[in-house]
Structures are given as C-alpha cells and as structure tokens.
Design a protein around this nucleic acid. Sequence first.
DNA 1: AGCTGTCTTGACCGAACAGTCAAGACCCTA
DNA 2: TAGGGTCTTGACTGTTCGGTCAAGACAGCT
Lengths: 207, 207
Amino acid sequence: MGAQIPETKRRLIAAALELIWRSSYGSVSVDDICKAADVRKGSFYHFFPSKADLAVAAMDHADIELRATYDRIFSPASPPLQRLENLAAFIYDAQKESAEKYGHVCGCPCASLGSEMGAQEPEIRAKFDEQRRHKTRYYQNVIRDLVAEGLLPADADVKAKADELFAYLMGRVMLARIENDLEPLRRDLKNGIFRTLGIAAETTPAA
Amino acid sequence: MGAQIPETKRRLIAAALELIWRSSYGSVSVDDICKAADVRKGSFYHFFPSKADLAVAAMDHADIELRATYDRIFSPASPPLQRLENLAAFIYDAQKESAEKYGHVCGCPCASLGSEMGAQEPEIRAKFDEQRRHKTRYYQNVIRDLVAEGLLPADADVKAKADELFAYLMGRVMLARIENDLEPLRRDLKNGIFRTLGIAAETTPAA
DNA sequence: AGCTGTCTTGACCGAACAGTCAAGACCCTA
DNA sequence: TAGGGTCTTGACTGTTCGGTCAAGACAGCT
C-alpha cells in the first residue's frame, strides 16, 4: 500500500502544485517546475510522461494533503452546525494564508486547473470529478446529521443539498481568487453555507 | 461616440474570444488568433500592444454583446420573479449553445480568464471587477422590485444579496464548464437563484 | 500630383517551449 | 563482485512562442 514515492518525484509534485496554484497551468513551464524542485529535466520525464500527468498528480497531492484536515473539520464528535462553522473558518484561513504567502488569494488549485484544462485534458476533468464526489461525501454526512437533529426537514434531498453546497463554496473561493478579495469569505461564508443548506440563520454577518 | 472599430480589429477580438472561451488563454497563441481571424501578425501588433491587451478587449466585447440581452431579461415590464426565471433560462440556453457549438460546456469567458490570468495581469482583474459590478446592478434592481412586491422583507440587504447571487451564478457556470455538465443548470439553477435571494421557492426541481 | 496618417504584409528575432536520449551513477540482490 | 533495475544528468531537438521591423499599400485631403 505505502506507495513509497521517491523524494525527487515528491519535490516535483510539491513544486508544481505551488507554482500552478500561484499562477496557472499555462504560465508555468516544465523548466520552471524543475528549477523550483532542483531536479533535471530528464528526471522529470522519468517520473511523468507529460506535463499534464504531473498536473493530475499535483491535484491528487493537494486533495490527499487535505484529508486529515477534512476529517477533523467534519469529526462526528462535533455538532453538525459546528462542523459547518469549522468548514467556513478553514476555508477563510487557508485562503488568507495563501494570500500572505504568495501575495494574492490563490483559490482552489483543482478548480482552477479544472477550469483551465478540463476540456483539453480529460484526466484533469476526471480527477476533479473524483475529488468533487469525495468532498460531497463529507457534506452529505453532515446534512444527514442536521436532519437527525431536526435542523433540516426529514424529506430534505441530501444529495442535492450537498451538490449545492459544493457549487456554492467553489464559486465563492474562485471569486475570492479572481477578485483577490478575502473579505466576502470572512463576512458571508458561514451564513452562505447555512442559507445554501436551508438552515435558518440566526446570525448576522461578521462585523 | 461610435468608436468605429476597424474590421480587422473586430475580427481579431471575435477570434480571440471564441478561441479563449473554448480552451484557455494559455493554450491559445497569437498565431492561432491571427490564423483564425485571417490577419497577419504585424496587424495584430498594430492594434494591440500585447496578447493580454487583446484578452481585455475580448472580455469587453463579450460583455457589451450581452448588454441588450440583459436589458431584455431584466426588463422592468416583467414581474421580478419572471426576470429571475428569464435569467436562469438564458444561462442554461447560452451554455447549451456553447456545448453544441464547441463540443463542451464553455462557461463564462470572463470568469475563466479572471481565474487564469487575474493575478498576473491586473488589467484582466480590473476588467472582471468592472463587469461584476455592472451585472450586480441588474441584480440589485430586481431585488429592490422583489422588496417592493413584498417577496423580500423591507430590510433586506440589497447589495449583499446581489453579490451572493453573482457568486452563486458564477460558481454554477464554472462548475458546469469544469464538469462539462449542463444538467445541474437545467434542473437546479432557478431554485438556486430563489434560495440564494431568500425567496420561498414553491417549485420542485425541473424533472 | 503630392503628402500624411492608417493599415497591411511577410520576413525576422531570440527566447522559451515540451519532450528526447545516451551515458553513467547508485543501490539492491544474488 | 557482478549484474540489473532505478534514478540522474546535461546536452540536445525541432517547434512554437510573443513580439519587432522596414517596406509598402491605400485612403483622404490639399
């Protein structure tokens, strides 16, 4: 199981993810990635048949890195409303960190890659879809618990609500990147999540 | 006023918009655009100082082309709920048309460009922001009419709701592009708009 | 006819691009 | 210690990239 990824390959993936996240797939060359990873080009093509394959590996890496965090955010030990607040806070914090580190809000690398290259590289689209389904499983789980607690009606369409939540969050994060603006995430994201799911929000926007 | 844009320049803008919409900024070269517009490269650089400047002009063109359509969709002659239904139907129809014409759902060219290049080309970000503000003016207008008709409470935050609607629609359209899937637009967009604005939806999802 | 400004042309540039390859270094196992 | 698979290296390929340029075509004006 433990795939035992070689150090060089790991460095290439990490460098690619960082560079593509900051700018874009098309703006980052294989040479850029090799230089950032301190790896020669021949090694690159030893591990990856093409630049697009590395991009897919980078998407995978980004997703897998987040799994422990998502397990913590959606821990069944927390009440479901708390989990949603955790999610909103995490998204804001992660985007804020990217802005401080790279000078601008970086959004979601998988969504940006999917938008830029999904049509031309089917494997990128497929990887995005896989990750979308993976994330909506967390959302479905918390929605079911909201139903169980009576915070959502028993006949709520769990799958539909989870899909709506994914679309809402992705849109908000991408907009934050495009506009380079964290403020709407800080101010409105929590209420937006509640509204999207149909939970009566008692809170006012963050000051 | 009538800026009198030369035919050659017009062809370059149209070709650039089409090619970038289909694929992406980074995947389309100046040569590609020139070939599609049947224009020689020297002419290109006579009209545009750089590829990025053409992209901004293409965003402008895309937006201006839509203004008459938006005026029709949001005509004050229609009841406000009808305007929102018009909007949902237009978005679906436009995306469906792009899918039939180009083989896949193309999303919004300005959002894709903004995501891909906004960080590196400030003028692209600025143009996107200008267009976002322009569109939210339509949304604010219809929200005020919804308040006037008692469909929204008198103390509704018009600007906040308009911004939420923009984010929701952009997210939905970008997701349709990434996943190459029209179905959620057809099935859920109308209800999603109502939910985003806080209007009690009496309708069930489209079959 | 001559001038001027706008537009067009096609050849041209150096840099950057994705990708290749043969040769060798390294490490495990036999 | 010999062999073989994995990895590394750096030079290399042919193409394409965004952008430049000088020369000329063409129109409108005088």
